[in-house]
Design a protein around this nucleic acid. Structure first.
Length: 591
RNA sequence: GGACCUGUAGCUUAACUGGAUAGAGCAUCGCACUACGGAUGCGAAGGUUAGGGGUUCGACUCCCUUCAGGUUCACCA
């Protein structure tokens, strides 16, 4: 319980006695008071007027007087138009700091949640779009964990299919036996190189065929390279030993490459699913759906579902030859996940270009009456676009994940060394620090935007390290650590502090921000939005810096002042560290 | 063509889900420190919230409409 909820409930309980009618809790809107008005908490009375049967002023006055008389923490009130501003007693805030955090949020039931994210294809390296996915997925998992839920992080690796065969075929034809060892290339880069290579030759063949008088569509279907790739896929499906061998080898290169990128990004997984294991799943469920008349069979033998009543189209779920389509696999995998984990909710961190697909998937599972259907949620995020448009691996117009990470670390290094504050660091310490700062800047940059919105990334403009950024918050953390190191007393003397302590405005402002931490944490979970927590971390840093500027800490005039401010400093540092850790950003002791 | 998403200062963005004078950062201009970390703080300027209409005490937020951009509607994944 926190003071906002407390007052809200108190008003609800007193309402019948004050006004002679019941009121719903959500009608009582409680906000922070904007800075330009006096007070800490604001109750908006407009929505209550029909129930109070009085004008705004009188209604507010009645509630205000009731609270001052009956809530020991409310000092006074003022009314401006229909807004009742409540001032909380100094002691309440002081006590909050001195005796540790008390504000909590009455949370909903704890659940088991499976979060699938990352889910790469094994035919090319990761790019900036994947980085956004990984960073978002990891942060979302962290937020749910921090709110007490059980979280399983899953990665469904798309390790088979025609696109994989394209890389394999191109390597076979043009690779001259190259390996990561022989070339010094990272495994995923090497495989990606041949994916591009395939496309190059394929396009050439198409042109040649068009010259012979065929249409573009015909040419695309008839190009020998494509036919060969399709043949290879068939061989793979039949379990042809040589094909499987090549597939295993090249995938192992890719995994070695991914491991490095994942490690640099600091993301991890509890469970891996491989599409080569799951691509045949779902067929039995289609059969089940046919029995229940959820699906129907067309004359050619293909199986469909009619979703026109739900405003969507007809959707095929099984080809005439009995083979699966994408959604068949997803149905099967959803079922497998439930068998494995019996989760209450299942999130898919997947780009918004698949909005329609997931709408269909959920609807199908609902119509099949699956117990997990309602718990399925597509965590849909916007694409990362370049000024030139969409990133396309085949055309090489991508911002490579590893390159980007290297660039970020390099610019962190440059800026940090220019300031000359860490000349006594060992090389190892420096390397670690540059990584902390560089990745902090990158992750902050990707997380600060509402996930739903697309991000425009201009490679020519480097990601900022000043202002509303990760390093700004990290810097503030390092400041708090610096002060605490310098404070003579290893321990802060709580006994010097008492509720009579008179707060400086900047202290009060900081306390109110710290106080909100559990509320923000709960909000960012409820709204599934890591940006909330990022924005909050920035708010703490900014508020602390103002406090720092206005209030002398170590050289404070009185002992209780010094101790109180050290305590605030310590708590600020802790909350910055915690909130950043939740979304996967590190903080340095010095920078 | 149908469906969905987006549009806020020059740029990048926020606004507690309908609340007070739309809040930040970058860039621009001007201030502040012989102090504990200047990757700082304070201030100025910058807005018809794409346009129009509606709903009400009150609209960036909800409804209608127009415009602009994007995604999707594959027996690809």
């Amino acid at each position: 319980m926190n003071i906002f909820q407390e007052i809200q409930q108190q008003v609800q309980q007193a309402f019948p006695a004050l006004f002679g009618s019941e009121v719903e809790l959500n009608k009582i809107t409680i906000n922070e008071t904007p800075k330009e008005f006096s007070g800490d908490i604001t109750l908006v009375v407009f929505p209550l007027l029909k129930l109070t049967k009085k004008n705004p002023e009188e209604s507010a006055k009645t509630i205000g007087e009731y609270l001052v008389a009956n809530n020991k923490n409310v000092a006074e009130y003022n009314i401006i138009k229909g807004f009742l501003n409540l001032e909380i007693k100094n002691e309440y805030w002081v006590d909050y700091v001195v005796n540790g955090r008390q504000s909590t949020v009455d949370s909903r039931q704890k659940e088991t949640i499976l979060i699938e994210y990352s889910s790469p294809n094994t035919n090319k390296p990761l790019h900036l779009g994947h980085v956004r996915n990984n960073v978002l997925g990891f942060a979302l998992a962290g937020i749910y964990k921090a709110n007490g839920h059980e979280v399983i992080k899953a990665n469904l690796i798309n390790d088979r299919g025609i696109h994989i065969c394209k890389s394999m075929l191109a390597w076979q034809k043009f690779g001259n036996g190259e390996t990561p060892e022989s070339t010094g290339l990272k495994g995923d880069k090497l495989v990606g190189k041949y994916y591009v290579e395939f496309d190059k030759h394929y396009k050439k063949q198409i042109e040649e065929i068009i010259v012979q008088g065929k249409t573009k569509e015909e040419a695309e279907k008839q190009a020998p390279l494509l036919l060969e790739a399709q043949e290879m896929l068939l061989k793979w499906e039949k379990g042809d030993a040589a094909t499987i061998e090549l597939w295993k080898t090249m995938n192992s290169w890719v995994y070695a490459g991914f491991d490095i990128t994942y490690k640099n990004l600091g993301v991890d997984f509890d469970k891996f699913y491989y599409e080569s294991d799951t691509y045949l799943l779902g067929k039995d469920i289609v059969e089940e759906g046919l029995q229940n008349n959820v699906f129907f069979k067309k004359e050619d033998g293909s199986v469909w579902i009619d979703l026109t009543a739900d405003g969507l189209d007809q959707k095929i779920v099984l080809r005439a030859d009995g083979t699966s389509v994408y959604i068949t696999q997803d149905i099967g995998t959803a079922d497998l996940k439930y068998k494995d984990f019996k989760m209450d909710q299942s999130f898919y961190v997947v780009g918004n270009e698949q909005d329609y697909h997931f709408k269909v998937l959920k609807l199908i599972l609902q119509k099949l009456g699956k117990p997990y259907a309602n718990g399925i949620q597509h965590f849909s995020y916007g694409m990362v676009d370049l000024p030139s448009g969409k990133m396309k691996s085949r055309e090489g117009t991508v911002v490579d994940a590893d390159d980007l990470i290297d660039d970020m670390i390099a610019s962190a290094k440059e800026q940090t060394e220019a300031l000359g504050k860490i000349d006594d660091f060992t090389e190892e310490e420096k390397t670690a620090l540059f990584k902390t700062i560089g990745l902090g800047a990158l992750k902050f940059f990707l997380l600060r935007v509402d996930p739903k919105k697309r991000i425009l990334f201009d490679p020519k403009e480097s990601i900022d390290l000043h202002g509303y950024t990760g390093p700004f918050v990290q810097y503030t953390y390092a400041r708090t650590r610096s002060i605490l190191r310098k404070s003579q007393d290893a321990e802060i003397k709580h006994q010097d502090l008492n509720a009579e302590y008179k707060l400086h405005p900047s202290e009060l402002e900081l306390i109110k921000v710290l106080y909100k931490y559990p509320i923000v944490l709960a909000d960012s979970c409820r709204e599934m939005n890591p940006a909330k927590l990022i924005d909050y971390a920035y708010e703490i840093a900014k508020t602390y810096n103002k406090f720092w500027h206005d209030c002398t800490i170590l050289a404070a005039e009185r002992e209780d002042e010094k101790n109180f401010r050290l305590l605030l400093t310590e708590q600020t540092g802790n909350i910055i560290k915690q909130s950043f850790a939740i979304v996967g950003i590190d903080v340095p002791e010095r920078m």
